[in-house]
């Protein structure tokens, strides 16, 4: 019992990575906010917190899928902005919502193909698609505006039996991701490919009959689709299209993933860790807002956290 508790807290000998510590941090921040402020521990603020954290949770789960195979997707933020811009195109929802996912999957496909077929480094491939998608988004919608379909707005702002819809979004997304990562052959293959890459044996999974190329392409498609879900949610919250809404969001997702104990070199990580990591980020933002910290300082602090959590991970490879 003590032994396993120690293992969870230290993240040793586990494929899930160090997720116990961020959970502890989340609990400590919540405790501190409960004691220090009267507004924190109210149902209203907590539900609000869930709604605020939801885009990050959804997008971070997508990022996790890519990080597990030792990649990184820097186009997440652009895909989210792009999604809100497409949703605000003033077309019927029945056209727009499928279109958003087809386009996101296409972006993921380009990322995956460039990486696997053309040997481009994941960071370079997704950095270029980030700029291309951002450019297209700015053409569609130079400044924020327009209106998104009613159904998208209703889907995030209503409530059922006193529980607001964002909570259900979270439950559904986490269940789908759980099935994908832990209840499917695909999830097992992700860990296999990533474990091989992390230990320097890129062909290990292929030698056991796991098609690495196809699975890697699929990982980038899945990541983009999760980013699109996050974008749809965000569009419902801001009720319009905004080309800057996802700016630097990809870094927040990387922070959340790394904070949740997932190794950026691949193969080690967990869904629950990522959700906890995203919650810690949301709690910090909530706390800093309650404490009236300047938004510019908040950005700097987020950068510091990113540097700290990624800097604490040890890695064999040097460079990119």
């Amino acid at each position: 019992m003590y032994r396993s508790l120690f293992n969870i807290l230290s993240g040793r000998n586990t494929r899930q990575g160090l997720w116990g510590l961020p959970l502890l941090v989340a609990l400590l921040i919540s405790l501190w906010l409960t004691v220090e402020t009267t507004q924190f521990a109210t149902a209203e603020n907590l539900f609000n917190l869930v709604a605020q954290a939801m885009p990050l949770i959804i997008a971070a789960i997508g990022q996790l899928v890519v990080v597990l195979i030792g990649g990184l997707d820097l186009s997440v933020g652009s895909v989210m902005s792009f999604t809100t811009a497409v949703l605000a195109l003033d077309q019927p929802a029945i056209v727009l919502i499928p279109a958003v996912f087809v386009l996101a999957a296409f972006i993921g496909l380009i990322n995956g193909l460039a990486i696997t077929r053309f040997n481009v480094h994941p960071i370079i491939a997704t950095l270029s698609t980030q700029y291309i998608v951002l450019g297209v988004t700015r053409i569609l919608r130079p400044v924020s505006g327009g209106t998104v379909p009613e159904i998208v707005i209703d889907a995030v702002s209503g409530s059922f039996l006193g529980v607001p819809y964002p909570v259900f979004w979270g439950i559904v997304v986490i269940l789908v991701a759980w099935k994908l990562l832990y209840g499917s052959r695909y999830g097992l293959h992700l860990f296999a490919i990533g474990g091989g890459i992390a230990s320097g044996a890129e062909s290990a999974a292929r030698n056991f009959g796991v098609s690495d190329r196809r699975n890697i392409i699929l990982a980038y498609v899945v990541c983009s689709c999760f980013a699109a879900v996050a974008g749809v949610f965000l569009a419902g919250r801001i009720v319009s299209g905004d080309p800057n809404v996802g700016l630097l969001f990809e870094l927040d997702t990387v922070t959340a993933v790394a904070l949740g104990g997932t190794q950026l070199s691949g193969g080690i990580g967990s869904l629950h860790g990522t959700v906890i990591g995203a919650l810690v980020m949301a709690l910090l933002a909530n706390g800093m807002n309650l404490a009236n910290v300047s938004p510019f300082v908040q950005t700097a602090i987020k950068g510091g956290i990113l540097l700290a959590v990624v800097g604490l991970q040890s890695r064999k490879k040097m460079g990119l």
Partner: peptide, 11 residues
């Protein structure tokens, strides 16, 4: 040995 993209972007 931190990823160079992450370090320099964060800085």
């Amino acid at each position: 040995r931190v990823s160079a993209v992450i370090v320099t972007l964060a800085v």
